[in-house]
Each structure stands twice: as structure tokens, then as C-alpha cells.
Design a protein around this nucleic acid. Structure first.
Ligand SMILES: [Zn+2]
Length: 650
DNA sequence: CGAGTTTGACCTGCGC
DNA sequence: GCGCAGGTCAAACTCG
């Protein structure tokens, strides 16, 4: 089941995602949790009767529709150091141009069959293109049609928020003209002619710009990939030398090779994007710092190994003996168990610590979905399921299987409070090329993680972490995200559940909520694609406000690309919230993208549609709780279902 | 037969 | 040290 559909990469990043996600619906039968005292073993396995391979049918869910909840994660902040956040490419594309969704207004009664939106997200392939166009055209932006018309690139590229601006202006002018037949026809005509000429010019320019933008984006993407690859490799090599002693896992040594191999594969395949390393853990950042190697290497080490051999060295030599390492999947890269071993840290130094932190960084996405999993474009293999304390719903553990040894894992669990809410937590960095659909999510999560880590950076003020991040994030996204940079697992929670009542969020001091007037109704497109931008914006803001250097040079390189894109959202507006909101809402692309993003991510569009006010919530939570803490939030919130996604804890 | 899932066992960290 | 909880492993099983 866990498969994302295989995707081919469309070199044109901006292009529509071709990917067609399979919709998985299986029902979780809900049973009462047997009881707390039992061992894990006993508690598990209760659910997922079906669970098996993607079935399209939706189970009549037993899920009750509940109001949205916002999740708040509480954890202590104590991150050790994290490297400054760096880049990440935010796919600007947001094909979202397809904001179609006009229709969603109605309660979408689709039950089973409507995968439509989700499908749109990934699937929009060529066939859909037409649709998207159509959708787009009707849009207020009259110009869009013009834009779309000319080149294929046209529709897809939403990237140009700027462009829109131009268009809109032109539109208005046109409209005005038409509207007002004045006495001076001549004058009017002349003006009209001028305006039309101007419009044409603008359109032409717009097209050119789009093409350029597309080109640039592609180039950038490629460069970034290469850079990432290089960075990845170097550190590893370093580590080999440095860490050889301690670690001795042997896996590390492999990594470089793997990378190379991967590259080759990429080349051969061509479809895939030049290797991307999405690092939730800020791998990139770490890289900058130099340790990065740790990433891969660290990742490489399997938790098991750790556990088994506290002393790496010994194990290393013998360790292979287990044979676990040997296995391609595990061995090559190993999963790093979440628990970061503090073992070596002492000598291992900072690098490892950083590494650990990075690795741990998690991004959880809360979305309403009846589907067992959200389609994120990746292929996942389930490796475990367990009953989590305090939640009758089992938690499923998945690993990325798109590439052997990919360290990325995710946990999927339904919110105890509201079973319609599916909480997906991502951890780790992909060490392989990702299909566009997957990239969207990966970049999103990596961005979020980066933000998280950046905020948690030792260098940065502790204060800055929570509130500051929240503020910075919010303006752009108006979504609720909970950021907890807590010790065990710094986690960013993206709450994509719709929240009818913004006020609910106010409860928590740290949280911000901005309603998104426009966005909500329409969905289609790629939510995931959108998110990265949101976070990117957040990062941008953060750096901007805090004066925090977006970190390192290397980052700068990335940021240089990314940041520029972001500003458009704010264009002109100085007020953080109001203006931003206005600007955002005004921007059809953005709203559409947002809506699309939300919808897409959510496995089940229905629920999404159902809610009129969709909002993307970003909340920052600074509270410090131990990982063990089971969220206090749950208790605290009666109505609101506040979910605690503190992962370690639940 | 291979890939993926199920699920009991195992490991580790943490709190008491 | 004990028990709990989270996380992972891997044999057995299922499915296509
Ligand atoms: Zn992966």
C-alpha cells in the first residue's frame, strides 16, 4: 500500500505534475485500545483489517467528522545546535494555477469516488492540462488566458507572481475602459488603443518572463541538485576519515559510492531529478557547517546497530556480523533510529550532535483524510505498527522505498480526537532523486524542518524560536504550524485541517491564525508544492526580521534563488499581517495553490471541501515538554481538538 | 516469486 | 531495577 505511484520527473519543474497518485483507502477499524498496561505487543495489531494494497474504495468510515483541531506540539526546546537553515528549493511551480475548484463550494458529497482533487494534485498531466486551463481562464484574471495560450509552460507556471501583478493591472485598465464609455470617444479610443498595445506588450513580456523564469528555475534546480550532491559527498568523505574510528559502521563508507551510483542512475534514467537530498534534518544546513557528512553517514547507521553496539567500534568490525547491515536496504544506509544515541556524542563531537539533531527533526502534517495515508508521491513500505498510548488508533511506521537505503521514514497516525485527521510525520532526508510529486512534500517538510532547526539554533536566541518563528511564518501562510524544537524531536507540525473558528487557536499564545478568505474554497493543485513556498517565505521573513543570516554562504547561494521568489508575496506591503494577508489573498495563484495544497495533501478531498474555511495553520509552540510528555493539550482542549503531536510522547 | 504487510519479539530511553 | 512507551526488526504471511 504504501506506494506512491511511480513518477517520472518532469524536467520542467514548473510543469504540471504528472504523477497520478493512487488513492488508498482502507479503513481502520477502530477498536478500543486494549489497555494501557499491556505491552506494546499486545496493543498492536488491532487495526487495519484491510490495510492491504491500495484499494480505491473508501470505507465508510467510521470516522466521525469533527471540527478541526489544531495540533499543538509541546516539547522542550533544547536543541543542541543546528546548522543554519539553508536552502531548499521551493518548487515555485505550484501548478496550482488550477484553482478551479470553484465548485467546491457545495458540500462535496463525493464519497468514495472523488479522488478528484487529490488526483489533480499529482496527476495533472497533460490531459489535465486542458482542464487546468479551463479553470484558469474563467478566473478573474482575464489575462491568464492569454498567458496560458501561448506556451505550454504558460499555464503551469505560476511562479510569476510578479507577472500576475502586471496582468492584473492591465486587466483593470481594460475593464475600466470598457466600462466607461465616455463622451470623448476619441480620447477613450486612443487610450484604449494605447492600453491594448500596452497590454500586448505586457503579455509578450510576461510570456518572455515566464519562459525565462522557467528556464531559470530549471537551471537552478539542476544546480541545486548538483550542489547538494557535492555537498553530500564531501562531508561523507570527511567523515570517513574522521569518524572511521568511532563509527566503523562500514556503512558510511558505502555512502559515497551510493551517491555516485545514484547519480549514475539518475543520468541513465533521465527522468529523475538530479539527486536531491531533502533533508528534513537540515542536512543541508549541517552540510554547510561541515558536518554534513553526518547526514548521510549518520543516517547510514542503523539504529539497531547502535543499540546493539554501544561501542561503535567494536560493533563495526563485528557488527556487520549481524548481517542486518549487509542487507541492501538497511545496510546501505541505515535508518537511524529516532532516538539519537547520545553515545558517541562526547567524542564524536559536535558534528554528530548536530547530525543527530538534524536527523531528528520532524515535520508532521495534519490533514483530514479518510485515506490511510496521504499521497505524497513517495513509495513507502510499512515496517511496523504499534498502538500509541492515549490513542486508540494505531501508529504505522513507514520507510521510503524509492531508493534502497533511503533513511526517510514516516509515521502515520490518526488523531485520537478527530479520527478524520491524519497525522503524518516525516523524518529524514531522501538520498535519492524524487519525482515531482514527492519533491513537493519533501521540500515542504525539509523547509519546515529547516525552519525549525534554524529557530532552534544555539546561536539564535532561544526566544526567537517559537514566537518569532510563528510570527514570521504566519504572515505568509496564515496557516497554523506548530513548531517545537524540543530535545528529542524537534517537530514542526503543519496543520492542514480546516479550522472553522480561528479563534480557537488563539488559545495558545504562540499561535497565530490568519483566515484565508479566498483560498478555502478552491482546491486543486498541488498542496505540497505550495507549502515549500510558504516555508520558504517564512524563512525569508525570519532571516529578514531577525537579521539572522540565512546562514552560511552555501545557503546564501540557495537562498539567493529562493528568496527572490518569495518577496513577491509581500510585494509592496509592509504590514506583516494585514498586508500580507491581503496580498496573499489577492493573489489567485497563492490562494489557489494553498487551497490546492491543502486539498491535495489530504487524502480525502471530501472532508476538505466540506469545510468552508480552509486554513492552513501554522502555529508555533514554544512550550517545553519532555518528549515523554503526552500532550497536555489534549486534555486542555475540550472542544478544539487540539492534537498533540509530540511524537515522542504519544 | 518478489514485493509488501502483519505482528510478535526485541531494543532503548525514560520516569519512578 | 522495573515497568512503560516508542521504535524497529524480521519471520511469517498475503497478494499480484
Ligand atoms: Zn526516499
Amino acid at each position: 500500500m504504501a506506494k506512491g505511484s511511480g513518477l517520472s520527473f518532469d524536467p520542467d519543474r514548473i510543469g504540471l505534475f504528472l504523477h497520478k497518485p493512487t488513492v488508498i483507502n482502507s479503513l481502520l477499524h477502530h477498536q478500543e485500545d486494549k489497555k494501557g498496561k499491556h505491552h506494546n505487543n499486545y496493543r498492536r495489531h488491532l487495526y487495519y483489517h484491510h490495510h492491504h494494497k491500495l484499494k480505491q474504495e473508501e470505507a465508510p468510515a467510521a470516522f466521525m467528522e469533527m471540527d478541526s483541531a489544531s495540533a499543538v506540539v509541546n516539547k522542550s526546546n533544547n536543541n543542541s545546535r543546528s546548522s543554519p537553515p539553508t536552502t531548499i528549493q521551493f518548487p515555485v511551480n505550484l501548478n496550482c494555477s488550477t484553482h478551479d475548484d470553484d465548485q467546491d463550494d457545495g458540500p462535496l458529497p463525493h464519497n468514495n469516488s472523488d479522488h478528484h482533487q487529490e488526483m489533480d494534485f499529482f496527476a495533472d498531466k497533460k490531459p489535465k492540462t486542458d482542464e487546468s486551463k479551463a479553470a484558469t481562464i474563467p478566473h478573474p484574471d482575464a489575462d491568464t488566458k492569454d498567458l496560458s495560450g501561448p506556451t505550454e509552460l504558460g499555464f503551469n507556471v505560476n511562479t510569476g507572481l510578479h507577472l500576475l501583478t502586471a496582468n492584473t493591472s492591465s486587466d483593470q485598465s481594460i475593464v475600466d475602459d470598457g466600462i466607461s464609455p465616455h463622451s470623448d470617444d476619441k480620447r477613450t479610443k486612443s487610450e484604449l488603443a494605447v492600453l491594448q498595445a500596452e497590454l500586448e506588450r505586457l503579455n509578450g513580456e510576461n510570456l518572455r518572463l515566464r519562459e525565462v523564469l522557467t528556464q531559470v528555475s530549471n537551471n537552478y534546480n539542476n544546480l541545486q541538485m548538483h550542489l547538494m550532491t557535492v555537498m553530500q559527498q564531501q562531508p561523507q568523505q570527511k567523515q570517513d576519515h574522521i569518524k572511521a574510528d568511532n563509527i566503523g559502521e562500514g556503512q558510511e563508507g558505502k555512502l559515497p559510492l551510493e551517491d555516485n551510483n545514484n547519480k549514475h542512475q539518475q543520468n541513465s534514467h533521465g527522468l529523475m531529478v538530479p539527486r536531491q537530498f531533502m533533508d528534513l534534518g537540515l542536512a543541508a544546513g549541517a552540510t554547510v557547517e561541515t558536518d554534513e557528512a553526518s547526514l548521510s553517514s549518520s543516517e547510514g547507521r542503523s539504529g539497531r546497530e547502535r543499540s546493539r553496539s554501544p561501542t561503535n567500534n567494536v560493533e563495526a568490525s563485528t557488527g556487520g556480523s549481524d548481517g542486518r547491515d549487509d542487507s541492501p536496504e538497511k545496510g546501505s544506509q541505515g535508518w537511524v533510529p529516532n532516538k539519537v544515541p547520545r553515545l558517541n556524542s562526547g567524542s564524536k563531537n559536535v558534528d554528530q550532535a548536530t547530525e543527530a539533531t538534524m536527523r531528528k527533526a520532524r515535520v508532521s502534517v495534519r490533514a483530514r483524510s479518510e485515506a490511510p495515508m496521504i499521497t505524497d508521491g513517495c513509495q513507502w513500505r510499512k515496517y511496523g505498527q504499534k498502538m500509541a498510548k492515549g490513542n486508540p488508533c494505531p501508529r504505522a511506521y513507514y520507510r521510503c522505498t524509492m531508493a534502497a537505503g533511503c533513511p526517510v521514514r514516516k509515521q502515520v497516525q490518526r488523531c485520537a480526537e478527530d479520527r478524520t485527521i491524519l497525522i503524518t510525520t516525516y523524518e529524514g532526508n531522501h538520498n535519492h532523486p524524487l519525482p515531482p510529486a514527492a519533491m513537493a512534500m519533501a521540500s515542504t517538510t525539509s523547509s519546515a524542518a529547516r525552519m525549525l532547526l534554524s529557530g532552534s539554533m544555539p546561536s539564535a536566541d532561544g526566544l526567537m524560536n517559537s514566537n518569532f518563528l510563528a510570527r514570521t511564518l504566519l504572515p505568509c501562510s496564515s496557516s497554523m504550524a506548530t513548531i517545537s524544537a524540543s530535545a528529542p524531536f524537534p517537530t514542526v507540525t503543519l496543520d492542514l485541517t480546516q479550522n472553522p473558528n480561528p479563534l480557537q487557536f488563539q488559545r495558545s499564545p504562540n499561535q497565530f491564525h490568519l483566515p484565508f478568505p479566498n483560498a478555502p474554497q478552491n482546491f486543486v493543485g498541488n498542496p505540497a508544492a505550495l507549502l515549500p513556498q510558504i516555508f520558504g517565505q517564512a524563512l525569508y521573513n525570519q532571516s529578514k526580521f531577525s537579521g539572522l543570516q540565512m546562514s552560511q554562504d552555501s545557503d546564501a547561494a540557495h537562498l539567493g534563488h529562493q528568496v527572490p521568489q518569495l518577496p513577491p508575496l509581500h510585494q509592496g506591503q509592509q504590514n506583516p499581517l494585514a498586508d500580507t494577508v491581503t496580498a496573499l489573498t489577492a493573489d489567485p495563484n497563492f490562494t489557489a495553490a494553498l487551497a490546492a495544497a491543502i486539498t491535495t495533501i489530504i487524502g480525502n478531498p471530501q472532508s476538505t471541501n466540506a469545510a468552508n474555511n480552509s486554513s492552513l495553520n501554522i502555529t508555533t509552540n514554544t512550550s517545553n515538554n519532555n518528549g515523554s510528555v503526552t500532550t497536555s493539550n489534549n486534555n486542555s482542549n475540550g472542544n478544539n481538538k487540539v492534537l498533540n503531536t509530540s511524537f515522542p510522547g504519544n
